[in-house]
Simulated scan of single mutants.
Amino acid sequence: MKFWLFKSEPDTWGWHDQLAKGDLGEEWGGVRNYQARNNMRAMQLGDLGFFYHSNIGKEIVGIVEVCKLSVPDSTTEDPRWDCVHIRAVRALAKPVTMEQCKATVGLQDMVLVKNARLSVQPVTQEEWQIICEMGGTAP
């Protein structure tokens, strides 16, 4: 199993929107960055990810699971773009902010800290464990 982080602006698509989709989940469409797309192409069913509110809040608020492998993105007819579907698993007991990540030993090299603009990014197992602990949530 691999770990990921999915970024979204909460006023466009927030954690509550993701929760409302239930077990069927939702397409993580609209991504127009090759690195982010390639990250989604590398995902497997059951991989877990953090749901991160960007711009407003700048915090990790929940855990999601890949529930459908990469398929063509329905938001475009351009065949270069595809995406996975994700479903909400659970909220973090306490959101983990970007500032907390920057100040925490073991997270200083996290992609979120080093390349905050990448919308879909890998998370190491060590980073996953640290953030789950910080968020008061079992890994």
Results as ranks from 00 to 15, higher is better:
1 M>F: 15
2 K>F: 08
2 K>Y: 09
2 K>G: 07
3 F>W: 08
3 F>Y: 14
4 W>G: 00
5 L>Y: 01
7 K>Q: 10
9 E>N: 05
15 W>P: 00
15 W>A: 02
15 W>I: 00
17 D>V: 07
20 A>V: 07
20 A>S: 11
22 G>N: 05
24 L>Y: 10
24 L>W: 10
27 E>Q: 09
27 E>L: 06
29 G>K: 07
29 G>L: 06
29 G>C: 10
30 G>C: 13
31 V>K: 07
32 R>F: 13
32 R>G: 08
33 N>Y: 03
33 N>K: 02
35 Q>K: 06
35 Q>D: 04
35 Q>E: 09
35 Q>S: 03
35 Q>A: 06
36 A>F: 07
37 R>C: 11
38 N>W: 06
39 N>E: 06
40 M>W: 05
41 R>W: 12
42 A>I: 02
42 A>F: 00
43 M>D: 00
43 M>N: 02
45 L>I: 14
47 D>Y: 14
47 D>L: 10
48 L>E: 03
49 G>W: 00
49 G>L: 00
52 Y>L: 02
53 H>L: 14
53 H>C: 10
54 S>I: 04
55 N>F: 07
58 K>D: 13
59 E>S: 13
60 I>Q: 00
61 V>C: 06
63 I>K: 08
65 E>R: 09
65 E>H: 05
66 V>D: 02
67 C>E: 04
69 L>G: 10
70 S>M: 09
71 V>Y: 02
71 V>K: 02
72 P>S: 08
72 P>Q: 06
73 D>K: 07
73 D>V: 09
73 D>F: 05
74 S>N: 12
75 T>I: 07
75 T>L: 14
76 T>E: 03
76 T>M: 05
77 E>Q: 07
81 W>Y: 02
81 W>R: 01
82 D>S: 14
85 H>F: 05
87 R>T: 09
90 R>K: 14
90 R>S: 09
91 A>P: 03
91 A>Y: 04
92 L>R: 04
93 A>I: 06
93 A>G: 09
94 K>H: 11
94 K>I: 10
94 K>C: 11
98 M>S: 12
99 E>M: 11
101 C>I: 10
101 C>A: 15
102 K>R: 15
103 A>L: 11
103 A>I: 12
104 T>L: 11
104 T>I: 11
105 V>C: 08
107 L>A: 08
108 Q>G: 02
109 D>N: 15
113 V>M: 05
114 K>M: 04
117 R>A: 12
118 L>H: 06
118 L>E: 08
119 S>R: 00
119 S>N: 00
119 S>A: 01
120 V>R: 01
120 V>T: 03
121 Q>A: 11
124 T>G: 05
125 Q>A: 15
125 Q>L: 12
125 Q>D: 14
126 E>D: 14
126 E>K: 14
126 E>S: 13
126 E>R: 08
127 E>L: 06
128 W>K: 14
129 Q>I: 15
131 I>A: 01
132 C>Y: 03
132 C>N: 08
132 C>R: 01
133 E>I: 10
133 E>Q: 13
133 E>G: 08
134 M>I: 12
135 G>R: 01
135 G>D: 02
136 G>M: 11
136 G>W: 07
136 G>N: 11
137 T>W: 10
138 A>S: 13
139 P>G: 13
139 P>D: 13
